[in-house]
Write a protein that binds this DNA or RNA. Sequence first.
DNA 1: CGCTACTTTGATAGTGCTCAACCGGTGTGG
DNA 2: CCACACCGGTTGAGCACTATCAAAGTAGCG
Lengths: 243, 243
Amino acid sequence: MTRPMTAVASDEGIAPAILRLSALASLDNADLALLRNAMDAPRIYPVRHTFLTLGRPIAEPLLLLQGWAARVRILPDGRRQFMSFYLPGDVIGVSHQAMPLASATVMALTECTVCPAPPAPAGSGLAQAYAVAEALDEAYLLGHVVQLGRLNAQERISDFLLEIYERLSLAGLTVGGSFEMPLTQEMLADALGLTPVHVNRMIQQARRDGELMWKSGRVLLRDPERTARSIGRHSPQVTGTAR
Amino acid sequence: MTRPMTAVASDEGIAPAILRLSALASLDNADLALLRNAMDAPRIYPVRHTFLTLGRPIAEPLLLLQGWAARVRILPDGRRQFMSFYLPGDVIGVSHQAMPLASATVMALTECTVCPAPPAPAGSGLAQAYAVAEALDEAYLLGHVVQLGRLNAQERISDFLLEIYERLSLAGLTVGGSFEMPLTQEMLADALGLTPVHVNRMIQQARRDGELMWKSGRVLLRDPERTARSIGRHSPQVTGTAR
DNA sequence: CGCTACTTTGATAGTGCTCAACCGGTGTGG
DNA sequence: CCACACCGGTTGAGCACTATCAAAGTAGCG
């Protein structure tokens, strides 16, 4: 457990989160006020900070403003598996239980800026946004199961990058087909159930195939549409209204 | 879509579901009355019935009384992946959205008896039971990701059978270390991200190792504790109170 | 400038896949 | 009552994908 630093959040830091939540449901001024208010108390945590620990109580849900975090499980022999990722605008630690215990450990993969997720009034747009976010979360988790179970290495990497691309787009964090990718190839391997070496080789092949560019923490997908079609990817759709 | 048959549910049909829910939270007489009442209108669906279809609206949550169902995804080229299983006492199609769309297709793997899941009064034991059930569901899904990502074939099979054993125990559906396993090896393969042939070989090896017996739809785990230890399995724990 | 962390490369091994065939039980119809 | 079909389980041979081990290259950073 590490201590937060008090943050002087610049506007560009919190915009993605608001943008993302707005994309999930229409937020009115009251909702936005709640969010802005909560964001007045941002906290910054360093890499490897543990937000939640498997089996320990969940204090309060957090809204991720900046950075990446992930649900992770470490096996006794050291094998590691990332189960899902949290990007700006995602909510960490929602539960509908009275005394919830964390169903997984959540760890900061980069420096992370967070704030408490403001409780949403029943029926509000914000409540709806939370619900959609939760449903999306599950949809991505289901997608991850399919990835691991039935896609080969090449397909897993493409599918993963497409998912991230799509999610970051909702938060306005993509420029053209490109976005920041703070994960190392080793982390990617631990998300995709592969070894770092093999991930490296498949990425190089994708590069040779002109599918993507990947340099110094930034990924450019040459033709997301085509790639998506080639691996039969279809994006989660969990609400009748949004998008 | 197939038509339900009207059922004359015998008591042994609904007991497992009540047992399971009671194991998740303490239900009072009002809760039990709600359940018993809902169970008065059981419906029986044949194998391969589709309860929910990916992207289509969810009508009402269902309580599974008898049989097995699963969330499944079929890829364009025919590859199939089971993402999670529903056993007696599980609730199919919970959502916190206003107009929820199914995040996956749910299909009956055996003949299934279901009834509408009675709406739970806020704060009731039943509501708590639903919440815990939902959390458990997610915990098992996370476990599935780890299985697929970081366990080898042998470990996946053991882990899967242990999970099923544990879940059926909650519903009182195990006798000693044995329980009914209606899945074919092919379905198991589609759950574990393997081929049927390889599943077969690994099962035979487990048999030779004296780890399990598997005959005519019934599995006996010789020493669940030892097996669990050997693969470092630890059971989900998502509530401070129950169990 | 020298760490350190990350990426890249090579050689070899092994787990799990593919294809193909056979076996055994069960249910059905002649 | 037997023939046949069907489904699920079993077996064998060969191969491909991915892992493993080891080492070298590269980039950021104090």
